[in-house]
Amino acid sequence: MRVTLPAARGRRFAPFIALSALALSLSVLAGCAGGASADDAIGVNALTADPQAFSGEIAVVGVVQDVSADSSAITLIDLTEYETCGLTPCGGAGILPLFLPTSGTPAPSGALYEGSLPALEDQVVVTGTIRSAESGLYFDVERVDRGSATLMTKQR
């Protein structure tokens, strides 16, 4: 009858334990990569229902519905609306215009931006603050992120 010493028994399991730990770590990393910031962000419909109700810096998740011809502005629609109804939302969909000029006429906040505009149908998270101007409320963008990449930031 073969007798296995405790130390030898433990060594037998070592590769299995190491492999399991690696698999678990990879799973956790994969789960954490991307999407986490989108989960915390506010939807476009929720923001446009009552923009004045939001104060301070907020993150908004949406899908790019339109890019202006001069590439200085985009509009976002709600992510859930886009997933259900595409770029033409079913209804009740707010749209969020964002002014992101890199040169020439600045945004209502007076800011210019650096980086590249997201493309049509990109899912982005936009960080900024609701502010008021003579023409009404606008979203003063600090940063535009797509996944883990930052596409645009304010010029300093």
């Binding site: 506010i42 939807g43 419909n45 929720a46 923001l47 229902a49 009552d50 109700a53 939001f54 104060s55 301070g56 907020i58």
Partner: peptide, 13 residues
């Protein structure tokens, strides 16, 4: 059915 927010948390109204 509309909406608002309390403490930056969206709430249905």
């Amino acid at each position: 059915t509309v909406g608002s927010a309390i403490d930056n948390e969206p709430v249905p109204v």
